[in-house]
Design a protein around this nucleic acid. Sequence first.
DNA 1: CTTATTTCTGGAAATGATTTCCATTAAACA
DNA 2: TGTTTAATGGAAATCATTTCCAGAAATAAG
Lengths: 156, 156
Amino acid sequence: MPCRKGCGPQWWHGKVKDCGYRITAGREAIIEALSSTHDHLSAEDVYARIHDKYPNVGLTTIYRTLDMLVNLGLVFKFDFGDGKARYELTEGPKGAHHHHHLVCTGCKRVIDYTDFIDDEVELLRRTEKGLSDKYRFRIDNHLIQFYGTCTECLAK
Amino acid sequence: MPCRKGCGPQWWHGKVKDCGYRITAGREAIIEALSSTHDHLSAEDVYARIHDKYPNVGLTTIYRTLDMLVNLGLVFKFDFGDGKARYELTEGPKGAHHHHHLVCTGCKRVIDYTDFIDDEVELLRRTEKGLSDKYRFRIDNHLIQFYGTCTECLAK
DNA sequence: CTTATTTCTGGAAATGATTTCCATTAAACA
DNA sequence: TGTTTAATGGAAATCATTTCCAGAAATAAG
């Protein structure tokens, strides 16, 4: 048998084990849920998507696991201003598809975008270098969001 | 008498009145608190700084007022990951001193920075233009934060 | 200035996301 | 397989933020 779920060794197992954490069914389910969508899931969303298949995974475990994954750098936690945290994988089985967000302050809709990133990446690299030198700060990540009003909300 | 507080007409009165809001002592106190610091104040922080001088301004009013100011665009609301929202004036009596943030994920310390902004401003302008054209989105604002570890936390 | 209208207020109670507790279960590794 | 130790879930606790509502205050009208 190749692997518990018949899908090859999981790309994230190494990082989790290396940090002394165990691989459990709940954790597999949570990462699977995050892997299988581009939506910005809240903890409750993850619970809802998992619950049919894994009725014995509780909300508490989801919060705990997401927190662990954020600390490991496998997941990014976002705040889009609607009162609940949202989570996204920072990298997937096929590697990261880096993107930033456009947040509509009217309807709270979030658009991912990956275009114009080339120039941004170049500038970000320079900026991060400059900042970490000047402030003696090790930069691991960045968050870029644009706020505004989407077409639908503008129409009102 | 020049003005209620003897300090000239307040720069923000116009915007508040134009939107149909009233000028009250509580609101003056809250904006004064935000104006007089570069710290990233939470609602409770504002309460603490105001309470001696204005013991009759309650927390509820502070939340309500900050929310109003965010909607008017006079205040920006931040989430640095410590569970409470932080507020900063977007512009002051002397105009905005635009900056971005460096957040230490270890100790949650936040460093403001204004350097390297020139290149960023240029790229941001272009990016915002491109995004608003492509997604037909009116962009009002942006949020840029870098996450990492500060010198003190690195030392551990 | 006085009164009328409507917003603003604070305090208590409600809310809702997230955490904590703790006895039980299940990975991991010898 | 047995032992060790981390992980679990469900209930209760926490804590920032909102909601309610009757009274106070700001603006508009007279």
